[in-house]
């Protein structure tokens, strides 16, 4: 579930990046984060499949819930990192303008 959720996040983020093509929203780091994690979890999944075989596709409900919760938490963490990068780099100058505003 973690892999699946991250892959969906990667595809959606990449589609938005392609459509908007807006350097000032800095979607690039978010895409890299999701794709990097997706590739690494894919390797994890391959090894797990080699060990469990068909059982890999029928996880226990408790494991599925835990994995989904982890997947959502991972996305939340990635979004927080992206927002922090966006606010620190401030490509639109919004934060600077707010700070300088009396």
């Amino acid at each position: 579930m973690t892999l699946l959720i991250t892959v969906f996040a990667a595809v959606i983020t990449t589609a938005i990046w392609y459509k908007k093509s807006d350097e000032k929203m800095m979607l690039g780091p978010l895409c890299w984060m999701f794709w990097g994690a997706s590739i690494m979890w894919l390797v994890d999944a391959i090894f797990e499949y080699a060990e469990l075989k068909a059982e890999y596709f029928t996880p226990a409900l408790e494991d599925m819930i835990n994995d989904s919760f982890l997947g959502l938490s991972v996305i939340a963490l990635a979004l927080i990192i992206w927002v922090v990068i966006l606010l620190i780099k401030d490509p639109r100058g919004t934060v600077r303008a707010k700070l300088l505003k009396k």
């Binding site: 780091p29 890299w32 984060m33 999701f34 794709w35 990097g36 690494m40 979890w41 982890l70 938490s73």
Partner: peptide, 20 residues
């Protein structure tokens, strides 16, 4: 830098999973 970003992104999120 694309490769570095891919690696760092994956490593950060995987480190969180291991912490979890």
């Amino acid at each position: 830098f694309w490769l570095a970003d891919l690696l760092w992104g994956g490593v950060i999120l995987l480190a969180f999973e291991h912490l979890w």
